[in-house]
Design a protein around this nucleic acid. Structure first.
Length: 492
DNA sequence: TTCCCTTTGAAGATC
DNA sequence: GATCTTCAAAGGGAA
């Protein structure tokens, strides 16, 4: 793992971000070997975390020591080189692989949520089933599969997938099959953490609808983009469980990390350039090299105002056009009472898309795990859920967290590629120092009336003693578990 | 309708 | 460099 290299290679590039790990020591390792329930493990780990936090000063394995030295090389320049190289390969008709091997850019909706409705991990989510077979695909899909294969090989060396082989391609295809038949033969289990879904498992997020074995998309040869030569199927009305695109709104290119948000179906970043129309809006996605390649050829500032939209004209969730309040005759009144400067400023603000910040590791983790926590618990309030997720985050192993840090790093990298001039400051409402919302300041050592709150019955996590709002117990336990409320809450 | 809550991490601003 | 502030997601709840 990168964070364990201690200044070694930086292939994964996440070692500069692993900061939240606590000294869990060998004890945790032993505990991890114990295959007891995840909740118990989380409980112990969380306890260890708390303990280590209190003894942080005495710990020789400080965060600073774990944190590898920052990268000396300009990551941006490095990535740009990779992108250019990838672009050249694409010009040649084939590109061997993405510069960011962490992106398969293929989605399987039915695997993106590995948890059963009751919150348990589904068997199919633990094992990637590969089935042999034969079929023929277009050259485009072959490229996509090669990318996926290479990605799989890199991420899961134990996965017996060979690029270029019909078998592997078919395996990939069949892995997306909704049919239980794909479980029958040539199963290739993927090593995963015993008590957590491999964060990258959802990367194999094919759309079974598009790649049903033996059912090649009939629309493939029907529509070919005259510019790119890439088959461009019409957008089936029921094609996307993620993108509420109307028929004909083809071309939205989901974010490579869209698998992380399968339920919301929100690709994080749009391709701000036009001209590229993807034949598989949901099943196959363009990789970072492709998107960045396009972005590099058509930088955002060269894109007319419609760059806040996809080529389809569908605004991307990552770009939120500032909502302009519809004031009746407001324009007339405003024009009378405001200066031209103010008008122009407002217009700029209106036109300026709101490019959201890239998600950090924890945000990515939250997006993936929120549904599970909601399913496991009866909680509904996000504040309470986030508390649980925060504790679970600390309970994650280093390796598991490292995956999210790596993804977050790629998020930032891609974001930087797509929006070179963007700054987090752009999203500051009212500028720095002018709080948009005032947060409640916690006084250190502040005792709260919720210290009576005890073990969370949902997650078996250590007691949470920093509850501060009267609605905490209600949020945490729900109305149907008022017997677990603390005294003050019960008396409310 | 808008903001708060709540979490962690990243990034910018300030001292 | 340390500290502070804001924002990113989420959705119920409060104002």
């Amino acid at each position: 793992m990168p964070q364990l290299n201690g200044g070694g290679g930086d292939d994964l590039g996440a070692n500069d971000e692993l900061i939240s790990f606590k000294d869990e020591g060998e004890q945790e390792e032993k505990i991890s070997e114990n295959s007891s329930a995840e909740r118990d493990l989380a409980d112990v780990k969380s306890s260890l975390v708390n303990e280590s936090e209190t003894n942080q000063n005495s710990s020789s394995d400080s965060e600073a020591e774990r944190r590898p030295p920052p990268r000396s090389e300009s990551f941006r320049d490095k990535s740009r080189e990779s992108l250019e190289e990838a672009a050249k390969r694409q010009d040649g008709g084939l590109f061997k692989g993405p510069p960011y091997p962490g992106y398969p850019f293929i989605m399987i909706p039915d695997l993106t949520s590995p948890y059963l409705p009751n919150g348990s991990l589904s068997p199919t989510a633990r094992t990637l089933h590969i089935q042999s077979g034969s079929t023929h695909y277009s050259a485009y899909k072959t490229i996509e599969h090669q990318i996926a294969i290479q990605y799989l090989q890199m991420k899961w060396p134990l996965l017996d997938v060979q690029a270029g082989s019909l078998q592997s391609r078919q395996a990939l295809k069949d892995a997306r099959s909704p049919s239980p038949a794909h479980i029958v033969s040539n199963k290739v289990p993927v090593v995963q953490h015993p008590h957590h879904v491999h964060p990258l498992t959802p990367l194999i997020t094919y759309s079974n609808e598009h790649f049903t074995p033996g059912n090649p998309p009939p629309h493939l040869p029907a529509d070919v983009d005259p510019k790119t030569g890439i088959p461009r199927p019409p957008h089936p009305p029921d094609i996307s469980p993620y993108y509420p695109l109307s028929p004909g709104t083809v071309g939205q290119i989901p974010h490579p990390l869209g698998w992380l948000v399968p339920q919301q179906g929100q690709p994080v970043y749009p391709i701000t350039t036009g001209g590229f129309r993807h034949p598989y809006p949901t099943a196959l996605t363009v990789n970072a090299s492709m998107s960045s390649f396009l972005s590099s050829r058509f930088p955002p500032h060269m894109v007319p105002p419609h760059h806040t939209l996809h080529t389809t004209g569908i605004p991307h969730p990552a770009i939120v056009t500032p909502t302009v309040k519809q004031e009746s005759s407001q324009s007339d009144v405003a024009s009378l009472h405001s200066s031209k400067h103010q008008d122009s400023k407002k217009e700029e603000e209106k036109k300026k898309p709101h490019i959201k910040k890239p998600l950090n590791a924890f945000m990515l983790y939250m997006k993936e795990m929120r549904a599970k926590v909601v399913a496991e618990c009866t909680l509904k309030e996000s504040a309470a859920i986030n508390q649980i997720l925060g504790r679970r985050w600390h309970a994650l192993s280093r390796e598991e967290q490292a995956k999210y840090y790596e993804l977050a790093r790629k998020e930032r990298q891609l974001h930087m590629q797509l929006y070179p001039g963007w700054s987090a400051r752009d999203n500051y409402v009212g500028g720095y120092g002018k709080k948009k919302k005032r947060k409640r300041d916690k006084q250190p050592g502040e005792t709260n009336e919720h210290s009576e709150c005890f073990l969370n019955p949902c997650l078996s996590l250590p007691p949470i003693t920093d509850l501060s709002a009267p609605k905490k117990c209600r949020a945490r336990f729900g109305l149907d578990q008022q017997n677990n409320w603390c005294g003050p809450c019960s008396s409310l």
